[in-house]
Amino acid sequence: MDFQGYMAISGAMARTGIFGYGGGPSVIPLFRHEAVVRYQWMTDQEFAELLAFANALPGPIATKLAAQLGYQQKGAMGAVVAVIAHIFPTSVAIVALLGVLYTMKESVIVAGMIAAVRPVIAVLLGITAYEFCVKTWGGMGKVLGVVFGVVAFLLLGVLDIHPAFVIMAFLAYGTIHIKLYSWTKRKLSGGSGKHHDKGVSS
């Protein structure tokens, strides 16, 4: 058994669970740092694809990312270890500090601590979003990337469509686009080859 590999997964997922203050989107930059920067398990593009698939599935985003990262590294057992390592520290903390939190929830000091942390989370999310945009521009071009970004904003922010449906629609578009591109490329290469053969035979 690769104990070093399991220890790496456990440590990475434990850090995302401990420092992922606020839950939800706030933990995404932490997962990216562990998977892309620290351990280099995947590229930014692969992480963006993982995030898209995770958002299309039901359930908390953090546990889905932990399970997928663990599975990619060590299979089913890696997924189990990753999820446990991610949720265990905070579960223990919640059980141990629940009474304290209830007594201090009206405290001005606690409210100030929460307010001070929020800008950091906003900056982390902004940096992650910017890096995703740069990767998108590199793959699709700036014009198409901006168009898709505006469409996604309208669907999610204005029309309030569930993110899962938007992600599935974009995935479907990408699949159809690649299929059509490959089909067109094969047709053109096949057609040019036939013309070339005719010229040689004559």
Rank of each mutant, 00 (worst) to 15 (best):
V81C: 07
V134Y: 10
K135N: 13
V80D: 07
A129W: 05
M140D: 04
K74H: 12
L101Y: 13
Q73F: 00
V92C: 03
L98S: 12
V81A: 11
V81T: 12
T90N: 07
I114Q: 06
G157R: 08
E131M: 08
A82E: 04
M140I: 10
I114T: 07
G99S: 12
M113V: 10
T136Q: 13
K64R: 14
F132I: 11
V151D: 08
M140W: 14
L156G: 11
L124D: 03
A93K: 01
I109G: 02
A93R: 01
F132S: 11
V108T: 15
A115K: 14
P119F: 00
P119L: 01
A93N: 01
K105V: 14
L144V: 13
G78C: 04
G126F: 05
A115M: 08
A82M: 07
M104C: 06
S91D: 01
V81S: 08
V147T: 09
A116K: 05
A67Q: 03
G112C: 00
L69V: 08
V151C: 11
G78I: 02
E131W: 01
P58T: 06
G59P: 05
L155P: 12
T128L: 05
L125C: 12
V80Y: 09
Q68E: 15
G145F: 08
F153E: 05
E106T: 14
A129F: 13
F132K: 13
E131R: 15
F148P: 00
S91T: 14
V92E: 00
G59A: 09
G59S: 09
Q73R: 14
G145C: 11
R118A: 13
G112D: 14
A115I: 02
F132T: 08
E106K: 12
A96W: 03
F88Q: 02
P60A: 03
L65G: 06
F53R: 10
E106Y: 09
A85N: 04
Q72G: 13
V95E: 04
L101T: 02
I121K: 02
Y71S: 06
C133A: 15
I109F: 13
M113P: 08
Q72T: 03
I87T: 09
A152F: 13
L57R: 03
V110C: 06
T63V: 14
M77N: 00
L125H: 06
A54N: 13
